[in-house]
Design a protein around this nucleic acid. Sequence first.
DNA 1: TTACCTTTGAAGGAT
DNA 2: ATCCTTCAAAGGTAA
Length: 576
Amino acid sequence: MPQLNGGGGDDLGANDEMISFKDEGEQEEKISENVSAERDLDDLKSSLVNESENNSSSSDSEQAERRPQTRPDLESYEKARDYFSEALRRQQDGGFFKSPHYPGYPFLMIPDLSNPYLSNGALSPSARTYLQMKWPILDVPGSGLKDSRSPTPGHLSNKVPVVQHAHHVHPLTPLITYSNEHFSPGTPPSHLSPEILDPKTGIPRTPHPSELSPYYPLSPGAVGTIAHPLGWLMPQQGQPMYSIPPGGFRHPYPALAMNASMSSLVSSRFSPHMVSPPPHGLHQTGIPHPAIVSSGIKQEPHDMSPSMHARKSPVPSKKEEDKRPHIKKPLNAFMLYMKEMRAKVVAECTLKESAAINQILGRRWHSLSREEQAKYYELARKERQLHSQLYPGWSARDNYGKRKKRKRDNKPDSKPEDFSIRSKKQCVQYLPSEKMCDSPASSHSSMLDSPATPSASLASPAAPAATHSEQAQPLSLTTKPEGRMHHHYSLAGKASGSSSSSSSSSSSSSSSSSSSHSHLSIHGSHSTPILSRPIPFASLHHSMLSPPSPYHQAALHSHHALFQSQPLSLVTKHNN
DNA sequence: TTACCTTTGAAGGAT
DNA sequence: ATCCTTCAAAGGTAA
């Protein structure tokens, strides 16, 4: 199991590193949030970004939120999210969320209505939010560490029935946008009424269909606003955390697979009886049990786990296959972060292009403090755990090829010179504007990460120093020896040791040689990604070589605005 | 209509 | 052990 031992944020990585990281970048970041920044942004955008963005002189993020474009459901979602974001921040500060009970890992993921892992769930897109609650279980034994740090009451232990539903009202609870009324503090919504709770355990019993959480929506239409049995997973609106495939889960969830922790997690919400395999794998209520994985899930029969096998539907017709639910990969820390922050970023800047937004988010991610990132890493870990529990036989590989062809991986190879294609990729990121500084910093995060290997993360003591230096010198970083830098157009260092030639490599060699990804960035590998950021310099060159793509431009501007309060001279560079 | 773009991280196959 | 590739989200954009 992943280390939870690392426990909370502290453990996750060297703080030092992160901190250093913050020095420059963070400040900027925060600034980004300032109105002034927004203004800058607006200005910039106005020039580049087209009108659609209606800057509306929006110095106010609020206004931005109100943008017509915002989907109704999103609005509420965003608000909630914003609120959460703030809450997060506060928590980080140590204030707000200091939950007496469960300081350790407070956030719960509140996904959208539909199951996030199932692509079919078609609800409005959405977002997840995190609630601070006791984390029931998924915690690995190690997780206890964190808890241990805090005065964790016995009831908080994994053994405890986690779920407290309505009663256990989290301060944030109200914020959750479930649908509006769920979780009103103190007074549970009708659907959450005591009746729902299991008399014996006090745990929520299987809710009535109407009560069911969107999490496990049977069908999109059904989804609605239902309180989710798994409060912690409660989605806001839109996609459920674990949506049920159109076909419904055919197989009862492999309860067997659940470990104690898991069981506590799920069972608490889904008591055994709940799990009992109803006909068709649907829940008694008629709703498929979340845990139940449809046969379709397993892309490849042979891959199926034993349990799955046993239950596998007799005839997987082609048709079924088509229908078979696509189980999505669990979101990683960054993805979780993105989900949470995207709205905010979008609100701050009028940009809507995801590519641009993502760049900003990427930067912000790096500027996060270790603790902040740690939270997400942990969440991601939990998600992975949960995912694995829910879909024991699932393999990331199962999804390969589902996304259609992954871009032009090959194209570049064929034509290295083809700037048109590559241009997009390359440039942006490293706009000088960002002050490269932060760029290198990214490395911090890398250290942090590897949730999987906390120890490693912590470890990397070596890294810290390096990181700092790296910050100072953006490029130098590349060479971090230890890190295996992996992939995507890694410009720099790399084995080839062409660190120096980052620019050149990027333009030509790297692209062709390397694989698919177009990022110019250098990624650290899993556990010890040292350089997660793209190399700035390289980008510079590139940018010169080819005009920035729309994405880039947008990103540039946005970045500029968001990350630099001051209009740096750099800008010029972008232009190049 | 579909794939691309962009980000970081995770996973798993390939070397 | 390391490298490489793909996918996860998201939504405007381009083909």
